[in-house]
């Protein structure tokens, strides 16, 4: 363990309407499993994951704060926007309303977060409306209410990244985080984030504590 375990620490928040699958996306990312019947998130839950971006040859530690979608927690969850480098704005492709509400979530993010925050729009639950009938036979098949084209168009208008994913099948979940991470790293390269100003991005550097460890090491030998 000579080298650093990771090069960057990025703070992500996951936001969007209640019951669109935010917690499930996070659990899929961190534990590679599907949370079938999660309880509604109270306040905020934390999860973390190391991912590698091969093109940049960088290991990135994602610190994700999964926020409650319930209205009563909105004032609490807002406090998390400012410190984040990335945001997953999640809606449910089988719920028109969750897509409509995404606009107000985005407005919230724009109001409170760092202007350079990278936001990716994630349409979740595509497993519910795949054309392959056999795979959905067990779950009640629901109608898709938001088309890919429409969401893509809106994402483009608002300057958001966009992907459709499924926490249940795992499709595109890591891809969503990776895509956002690449975008943030790109911004870092361009110097958009300057280390001191944005609390959401941290370059890993030997901390004073590690230095302390080296001292004791050299002392005992």
């Amino acid at each position: 363990m000579a080298g650093v375990a990771w090069h960057y620490v990025l703070k992500f928040i996951i936001t969007g309407d209640a019951a669109v699958g935010k917690s499930s996306l996070l659990i899929r990312l961190t534990d590679q499993r599907f949370l079938a019947n999660p309880d509604p998130t109270l306040g905020v839950e934390f999860g973390s994951k190391l991912i590698t971006i091969p093109e940049e040859n960088k290991v990135v530690k994602l610190q994700c704060w999964d926020t409650a979608g319930t209205e009563s927690f909105r004032s609490i969850t807002r406090s998390y926007y400012r410190g984040a480098a990335g945001c997953l704005l999640v809606y449910d492709v089988t719920s028109r309303q969750s897509f409509v509400n995404a606009r107000s979530w985005l407005a919230d993010v724009r109001e409170h977060a760092d202007p350079h925050l990278t936001c990716i729009l994630v349409g979740n639950k595509i497993d519910l409306c795949t054309d392959d009938a056999s795979s959905t036979s067990s779950a009640p098949k629901r109608k898709r209410e938001v088309t890919t084209e429409e969401a893509e168009l809106w994402a483009k208008e608002e300057g958001l990244l966009f992907v459709e994913a499924s926490a249940k099948s795992g499709a595109n979940v890591e891809a969503a985080f990776e895509q956002a991470t690449r975008d943030i790293l790109e911004k870092v390269r361009r110097g958009v984030f300057d280390d001191d100003r944005s609390p959401g991005v941290k370059l890993s550097k030997p901390s004073s504590g590690l230095a302390l460890e080296d001292q004791t090491r050299s002392g005992c030998c």
């Binding site: 375990a5 905020v44 839950e45 934390f46 999860g47 973390s48 530690k61 610190q63 890993s204 901390s207 004073s208 504590g209 590690l210 302390l212 460890e213 004791t216 090491r217 005992c220």
Partner: peptide
């Protein structure tokens, strides 16, 4: 939640070195 954040951070080794234990 904070415990899992803390465990995953770079700080526990610092804590151990504080009491003089090489992490």
């Amino acid at each position: 939640s904070n415990q899992s954040y803390f465990r995953g951070s770079a700080l526990p080794p610092v804590l151990l070195s504080l009491v003089g234990f090489p992490p």
